[in-house]
Design a protein around this nucleic acid. Structure first.
Length: 415
RNA sequence: GGAAGAGUGGGUGAGCGGUUUAAACCAGUUGGUUGCUAACUAACCGUACGAGUAACAUCGUACCGAGAGUUCGAAUCUCUCCUCUUCCGCCA
């Protein structure tokens, strides 16, 4: 969310920046509503002032007049509330502004390749996809998951289930012990305000799973990513500057409707309604966001390096970034069966965009101001598993377990 | 799920229809005095929105868990909801 005063002052600039993100911002309409709104507020406040004065006088002859004013106030209030909600509807759905070093462009074609790491292995045999590799002994069992839950779910069995758990524990341990993130075990169901805070609501309602609670019209949602809970840990707080940065890590299931992706990645575990993800979140001073973003990217990269999986890092263009981000790096891992790199992590700086929505501030000598927030996958477990299975396969369909994972896999050499 | 009680500024906590402009205390900030690991003292000390300013300053309005209602007037009365505490029940 943007500072309304800033927006008001630099309408043209904002409009241009929104265009970079494929969002049309109607200046004339906004100006009209904003002017009307302020006019209504002014009128209302004048009447309130008068009413206050009359009621203090305790003069009976004024009671009738005071009543009339009350009536007028509630009329104005109704109009103003309506006007306000129209303005809110607009500004709640405006995305963050792309940072200056973000390439401008309407879609992923304008993303910028930053680096490539690791050697893509040349196999002497015909490689299998993770679906084929998992079909053996039904280790990756889509038949059963369809019976249980429908499409875009999966049942993992035996050593494959263990491998998922091993990857989670390996990543958590790395981020906790080596990069000094604080481990969090958060709720997976959150309320509406929390979803608003990180920007999932109101604009992306259709992507979320809403939970129905009995005897309550209060809405709850399954988290689409731990970013939502971890970032909102500082919601409505004022943090002492010397306690920043705060760094949180959690492994949670993530739930997504994947609306609008019908027919996309229908085979295998690439795109699921439910998947595990290890998520990193940093709360910093706003002017240290970009510095922290580089650090976070490094933390996420280190996982792939330790597992020896080839990957590339891409700087997203203005049109390809998520709603709350000002700058985003995607890490893409090599997937042999598709003969291409696939997104396995997304690390974003959100500046103070989310903090403003959450009411998260910090206190320094100068005063209080909104914090900066960052989030990044470190990494998406399902996709990491795909990458690991496919990159480490042998001709007989077995999978070599990388050294760093062995202690999490009962010291197995392969599965 | 049942019963009872409670939600007031960063914290403690008064007020229970109109000089409350939300007391007082603690914490915090800034200055002063004495002094030496502190004490005393004065002022300041919330958030949002609006007006105002180059930016401060300043001014206005609202905010006592949330929302609605009663009233000329609501922190105070009524209703609904939320949260917390205690007890009982159920449960991993």
């Amino acid at each position: 969310m943007h500072n309304l005063k800033e927006l008001r002052k630099n309408l043209e600039h904002f409009k241009k920046k929104f265009e970079e993100r494929n969002v049309d911002f109607d200046i004339i309409d906004f100006k009209k509503k904003d002017t009307l709104n302020r006019d209504l507020i002014n009128k209302k406040e004048k009447l309130e002032q008068e009413k206050k004065y009359l009621s203090k006088s305790k003069d009976k002859s004024n009671f009738e007049k005071s009543k009339k004013i009350s009536q007028e106030i509630s009329n104005l209030e109704e109009k103003q509330t309506l006007c306000q909600s129209e303005i809110d509807r607009i500004i709640f759905s405006l995305p963050n502004l792309a940072h200056d070093d973000v390439p401008v462009g309407k879609d992923e074609k304008f993303n910028k390749l930053i680096k490539k790491k690791g050697d893509i292995k040349k196999f002497s045999f015909k490689t299998k996809s993770h679906v084929e590799l998992g079909a053996k002994n039904q280790n990756i069992d889509f038949e059963t998951s369809i019976k249980l839950s429908g499409s875009r779910f999966v049942v993992l069995k035996g050593k494959f289930a263990m491998l998922e758990r091993a990857l989670i524990n390996f990543m958590l341990d790395t981020h906790i012990n080596y990069f000094k993130y604080t481990e969090i075990s958060p709720p997976l169901i959150v309320n509406e305000e929390v979803m608003f805070g990180t920007g999932q609501l109101p604009k992306f309602k259709d992507d979320q799973f809403e939970i129905k609670f009995d005897n309550s019209d209060q809405k709850k949602y399954l988290i689409p990513t731990a970013e939502v809970v971890l970032t909102n840990l500082v919601r409505k707080t004022i943090i002492e500057k010397n306690l920043l940065p705060k760094r949180f890590v959690a492994s949670t299931p993530c739930f997504r409707k994947e609306a609008g992706s019908y027919g996309k990645d229908t085979k295998g575990m690439i795109r699921q309604h439910q998947f595990y993800k290890v998520e990193l979140v940093s709360i910093t001073e706003p002017n240290k966001c970009l510095e922290e973003l580089e650090r976070m990217l490094g933390c996420a990269e280190s996982i792939l390096e330790k597992l020896d999986i080839p990957y590339q890092v891409v700087l997203l263009s203005s049109g390809d970034m998520g709603f709350s981000a000002e700058k985003t790096y995607d890490i893409e891992a090599w997937i042999p069966s598709e003969n291409k790199f696939r997104e396995i992590s997304s690390c974003s700086s959100c500046g103070s965009f989310q903090a403003r929505r959450m009411g998260a501030k910090y206190k320094s000598e100068i005063g209080t101001d909104f914090v900066g927030t960052l989030n990044g996958s470190g990494l998406a477990v399902g996709r990491l598993m795909i990458a690991l299975l496919e990159n480490n396969q042998n001709e007989d369909g077995s999978i070599n377990i990388p050294n760093v994972l062995k202690k999490y896999m009962n010291n197995l050499e392969k599965i």
